[in-house]
Design a protein around this nucleic acid. Structure first.
Length: 471
RNA sequence: GGCGCGGUAGCCAAGUGGUAAGGCACGGGUCUGCAAAACCUGUAUUCACCGGUUCGAAUCCGGUCCGCGCCUCCA
């Protein structure tokens, strides 16, 4: 396959995905705030990042993937208090839910998943560095702010001029109480002095009790686990400003080194043509999807069916379409396996009939193009299989290649659930088969209806039948 | 106002100068007692609209209409 390239938000151009150190591609992705169930829009970002990693690895490069957990911030504190739980108990619960969803979506676990609350001393250390270098100042109440004016390159990622940043442009944003302590409206909090509503969630610092600001955790933890300079930093497109801009300002001011080399941002997911929001009632979670009888893989397929840089519109129809498409992919895998028979299955690589698919992925993760090319091959293989024109050895090679491709997309097919039908359904099916053999079709059809009424379908083959749960 | 994205078949969605991928849905067919499943096969003279450049444009340029995102803590 070709060397993967990615659209880099910083240079606004395609850049090769190669490790600066020639060995390991080190990247950091902003993870979830664990204060409730992640929604399918969050998962678009995480699934795309998962794909990025898989594609880099398919190209033969080792990766080191770090993704944080935001478990101390306004929302986690507010919500845990509202529920009368300790911050730890609260965030641990939602972290576990998040992990379960990731697993269902077959997202690889990051190599390191640092928790913000577990790294407060590290964040304090970086704030001290910033203070020492004059990039930060302590306000009267003991909060610490980043002095945006002190960092010339501020705005270089989002290409916002400082003038525009400091001017509020027709938008009324909630004014925070601490606004008046800041030298400039564009300065942001590194450390927030303790407030009554924070309750017991307070940590000591050289500036008094309080808690870290939001942006500093990513700066401190990425530098800790990936080094002062690393290959790529990713997140949803909404994070470009201010979060990533602030991370750059913090990290580069503190270390004096360039921060992330490449910036990777994915577009948002909308639902039924509208932005997801609680008030519209269209903020779906994986559990909502599953409650409607779809499995997580279908969601993964939907999330990859559009290009990551384009807004993607989620609809229930698109999930249905994904489910059907996925069924076809799985079917071909099974057929190849069967055609391979006893032939030894060789090791897989990216060269072969699926190379165009890998090349499409390597081309800025063009998943729609890749799926198109994949199905083109699927079609030719289906045809050959149907004509019995596939020798076992070739089928084995293709099967290995096919599996590897499914892996690269992160598609995993649950083995056919041989969960047996209830005894009464089996008895009906037996009776129907007997009736059919006796050419008593009226009775056979009547029995089939009874089976259908019980939620099963019966499918005849030449020498028998199979029962499957009705979908 | 600033930055940015988009309008391609019923739905989803690639394609950034060489004559419209692919998926789903739908129609026809093979198979079947009939189905189902599986496979075969068909379906955009056309890419929001108007001009222009070019031998040639969905793709480039100018303009118009429409939709969307971000602009201090939302992936």
């Amino acid at each position: 396959m070709n060397t993967p390239v990615i659209y880099d938000t910083f240079t606004r151009a395609l850049q090769p995905l190669q490790p600066a150190d020639g060995a390991t591609f080190r990247f950091y992705c902003c993870g979830p705030t664990v204060y409730g169930p992640a929604h399918i829009g969050n998962f678009r970002t995480f699934v795309v990042q998962d794909l990025l990693r898989r594609v880099i690895e398919a190209a033969g490069t080792t990766t080191r993937h770090v993704r944080n957990l935001t478990d101390v911030d306004d929302k986690t504190i507010r919500q845990s208090q509202a529920e009368g739980k300790s911050l730890t108990a609260f965030t641990t619960y939602w972290r576990d839910q998040f992990h379960a969803d990731c697993e269902a979506l077959n997202c690889l676990s990051p190599h390191v998943e640092p928790s913000a609350v577990a790294h407060i001393p590290l964040q304090i250390r970086m704030i001290e560095q910033l203070l020492a270098k004059g990039h930060a100042y302590v306000a009267d109440d003991g909060s610490v702010y980043y002095r945006v004016q002190s960092f010339d390159a501020y705005g270089k990622l989002s290409r916002l001029e400082q003038r525009q940043i400091t001017t509020t442009c027709g938008h009324q944003h909630a004014q925070t109480d601490d606004e008046y302590d800041r030298e400039s409206a564009s300065d942001f909090a590194l450390w927030k002095a303790h407030k009554p509503e924070d309750g017991p969630n307070v940590w000591d610092s050289p500036w008094g009790p309080g808690r870290p600001g939001w942006h500093i955790e990513c700066s401190a933890m990425s530098v800790e686990y990936l080094g002062e300079s690393f290959d790529l930093h990713g997140g949803g497109e909404d994070l470009v400003f201010p979060h990533h801009e602030n991370e750059i300002a913090q990290s580069e001011a503190a270390t004096g080194k360039p921060f992330a080399r490449l910036w990777f941002h994915s577009a948002h997911l909308s639902v039924e043509g509208r932005k997801m929001s609680k008030s519209l009632g269209n903020l779906y979670t994986l559990a909502d999807i599953q409650a409607r009888g779809f499995d997580a893989m279908a969601l993964r397929y939907v999330l990859l069916s559009g290009h990551y840089r384009q807004p993607l519109n989620f609809t229930w129809d698109s999930l249905k379409a994904a489910q059907s498409a996925l069924r076809r992919l799985r079917q071909l895998g099974q057929d190849l396996r069967q055609a391979a028979g006893e032939a030894p299955v060789p090791g897989a690589h990216t060269e072969g009939p699926f190379t165009p698919v890998y090349d499409a992925l390597a081309d800025n993760l063009n998943t729609p193009d890749a799926l198109g090319k994949w199905f083109t091959v699927v079609h030719t293989l289906e045809k050959r299989l149907h004509q019995d024109a596939l020798p076992a050895a070739e089928a084995a090679t293709l099967y290995a290649a096919y599996q590897h491709l499914c892996d690269t997309f992160g598609f995993v097919f649950a083995p056919d659930q041989e969960s047996p039908a209830p005894a009464e359904v089996q008895a009906l099916a037996e009776e129907r088969w007997a009736a059919k053999q006796a050419r008593d079709f009226a009775r056979a059809d009547a029995l089939r209806n009874e089976i259908t009424d019980r939620g099963w379908t019966v499918q005849d083959a030449k020498d028998g039948y199979t029962l499957a749960p009705a979908s």
